[in-house]
Design a protein around this nucleic acid. Structure first.
Lengths: 192, 192
DNA sequence: TAAGACACGTGAGTC
DNA sequence: TGACTCACGTGTCTT
């Protein structure tokens, strides 16, 4: 307290040194960031941040539109879900009716299917290749009181992944299949 | 050195005020930027910048790939003409009509799905566990002028198997997706 | 206790 | 000459 003491003469200089190092890293990061922004004129700190934000939004928007376009062509899911056997849930995000042959539009990722047999659950996911994608997914699955027995990820096409997981319900598990798919989807959307 | 003059007593306080304002804007920009980065844990300044850089690169990369893909698709769609959008075939075993997704009756196995992306083909099969089942399936696939890149078989439930195969079209390959599924199904039925 | 992050006030440089 | 932006050293708060 008080502050009458500069603590220690040695630490004081170490402090300024550490701070100097920190500032240096930040400055360098600013430089790196600025380099990624096309058509950037003012390289003042706030402009870099502002333009980075704007550019990022723009990229996200464009990416979404492109994905939509690509997905429409490649997937065009005309999946018919009608009462396959008994336990089957299709992630059709909006539509409610069971009879609906979900014409899946918009961004279909992650596309999730789940089936159950006694205490076993099979989960199939079609999503974009993403950094840490798989571990995140496994992590989300385990959050739902499912113990993963086996998982497999197959890259297919440019940037998509087909993931198959077999898990087993723990005692605490008590969800409907539909809720499982829904919850899982919401969880995964945080990483994508 | 010097420092004898604080320039003006009025300006001094205006200076600190302006600087305070500037800092405030930067901080706010940092916050806005952080909000755009998915899966961001540490919101410390340097991490925000670093992750923003990484994320931006990732986005740029994906955007480029998507654009490339879209361009390719539109070109190829000329070659395939109208049926291009039908990149998805569902095995509905007996029914003949294209529009009829018949009520799947009796023994649904093997249940086959296929998708294609350029020269890659993804095949998903749901069938009963059988002796020599997998090698037979792979064999059948290769008969169709498809070179198998990767395959995975997951047992699930009592006696069923989920098989995922990624293959690549050889030069001789020339089938529609629908025919592929149909032919494959007929081939597999000999072993089941 | 020590290591790291932040905001602050301030001197200095730029257009 | 103001009105800016920046880097600096420092006190403080959080792990």
């Amino acid at each position: 307290m008080v502050g009458s003491l500069t603590r220690a003469p040695l630490l004081a200089q170490e402090h300024v040194l550490a701070e100097r190092k920190r500032r240096e890293k930040i400055s360098q990061s600013f430089l790196s960031l600025a380099a990624l922004i096309p058509g950037l004129k003012k390289k003042d700190k706030n402009s870099v941040l502002g333009d980075a934000i704007e550019y990022l939004k723009q990229l996200q928007e464009r990416k979404a539109r492109l994905e939509e376009q690509v997905a429409k062509r490649t997937v065009e899911s005309v999946k018919f879900v009608k009462k396959t056997t008994q336990f089957y849930a299709q992630d059709d995000q909006t539509s409610s009716s069971d009879e609906n042959f979900g014409t899946q539009s918009k961004n279909p990722f992650p596309d999730i299917e789940a089936r159950v047999s006694n205490k076993d659950v099979l989960i199939r996911i079609h999503c974009e290749t993403n950094k840490g994608c798989i571990s995140n997914i496994i992590n989300e699955v385990e959050k739902l009181h499912l113990s993963v027995l086996n998982s497999n990820a197959l890259p297919f096409g440019q940037a998509t992944l087909y993931i198959t997981i077999v898990a087993q319900m723990e005692d605490e598990f008590s969800m409907t299949l539909r809720d499982l798919v829904k919850t899982l989807r919401e969880g995964l959307l945080n990483f994508m």
